[in-house]
Every structure is written in structure tokens, then in C-alpha cells.
Design a protein around this nucleic acid. Structure first.
Lengths: 98, 98
DNA sequence: TTATTATATGAACATCAATTCATATTTCAA
DNA sequence: TTGAAATATGAATTGATGTTCATATAATAA
């Protein structure tokens, strides 16, 4: 059913998948999937260093997978939209079935 | 809606996404998405070297994303199941929307 | 067996990206 | 304006992986 996308589309798909294919980033995305969270909260829940989380958040931000809101000294991150959840769900189901 | 999967599940998700996040492998998967194809046919359609295609096919096989059938000197590859298509579709839509 | 076609594989290389460490920046309170 | 808390960033390192090259294996036909 799917025609083969042209190379530039496949390039973009590769980029998106590359960003999704990292343990720390996956955990971050799940952590903020319910509700926005501050960097500190994310650091606690993910269990990685503050620096690493910040680096990875930057990557997610650049790819428009998360959105940002500042409140005083705190910065809150949330998933950009529901596409991300849909992607996580498909992957989750592939992994957990059979 | 998604509870946070435990680390081993996230590990498996990371692995699957890693395998999907490569230009050559994406092209291969699309190439055989309609119908099984021999390695030679895949090489022609993908436009990569025979060696590279064979290496990547091995990776896809190891991850159970493709199945194999031998017929004389030819080896035919096909997508293992429809999960793979579902994954490709979600990613494609994310990339092409907006 | 020999030759030929199809496919697979091991080694080497080169690039990229995840992580850490140290430090900078921002914001606000005292 | 000094200090502290929260977040961001640059550099360095280390490990993983995509690609190529050369060669091996498998299958068949002559």
C-alpha cells in the first residue's frame, strides 16, 4: 500500500527515527507524556545527569518534538503534539506483542 | 495514557527504533513492502552496493523485521509482518504533515 | 570439475553521537 | 549586588555503526 517515498522524505524519516531511538530521550518523552514537567523533575524521574537531560532536551526541542515554557527560574517541557505518542505507541506494541 | 514502560521494554524500543533509523534500511523495507524481492532486485531499486544491502538485510533479519525464502541461487526477502508497515506509516505521516 | 551467478561475511576505516566534566547563563531573593 | 538555584552549553572522550573492499560460500549449468 505505501508507495516508496522520495529520498528527501526518507531522509526526514531517518532523522525523526534517529531522535526517537535513544534510551534517555525515550524516557524523557514518556516522563512528560502525561503532563509538562520542569527540567529538575525530568532529571529525577529519568535518573540521568542534569547535563545529559539538558542536552537531550535540546535535541528534542530542535526536532520540534517538545515545547517549552519558562516560569521564573524553571523551564517546563511538554510533548509537542500527539504524533509523538502515536509513534511511541506503535513501537511499544511492536515490542510487547508476541 | 501511556504508563512509562520499564527499562527493559524501553531498551527494546530503542533497539527497534535504531534499526529503523537508517536510510538504506528504510529504503529496503519500502522496496519489499509490496512484495518479496530477491537481493539483486533490492540492490537495483535501492541503489546501494550489494555488500551494503546484504549487511543491512542481515541486521533486519536478526531483528525479525524481514523473512527469508531461498529459491535456487536466489534469496527472497519480505517484510515479517504488518507492524513494520504500521511503524513506517506513523513516521511517514509525522514527517509529511503540517 | 570448472565457471558463473547470487549472496554473505570479516576486517578496516571513518564518522557520528551519547555521556561526562567543567563552566556559563538566567532568574530571583536577600 | 551577592548568592543560590535552575538550566544551558562547549569541549573532550569513548563507543557504536554505516560503508567499502576484498573475499568466501552456495547453487546451478555446462
Amino acid at each position: 500500500m505505501p508507495l516508496i517515498p522520495n529520498d528527501s522524505i526518507i531522509d526526514e524519516m531517518e532523522s525523526l527515527l534517529n531522535i526517537a531511538s535513544d534510551f534517555t530521550r525515550l524516557k524523557i518523552m514518556y516522563t512528560i507524556s502525561e503532563d509538562e514537567k520542569s527540567v529538575n523533575e525530568i532529571v529525577s524521574e529519568v535518573g540521568a545527569s542534569q547535563s545529559l537531560v539538558s542536552h537531550q532536551l535540546k535535541i528534542l526541542r530542535k526536532a520540534n518534538l517538545v515545547s517549552t515554557r519558562r516560569e521564573g527560574t524553571h523551564v517546563f517541557y511538554a510533548l509537542a503534539d500527539d504524533h509523538v505518542i502515536a509513534l511511541l505507541n506503535v513501537v511499544y506494541e511492536h515490542v510487547t506483542e508476541e
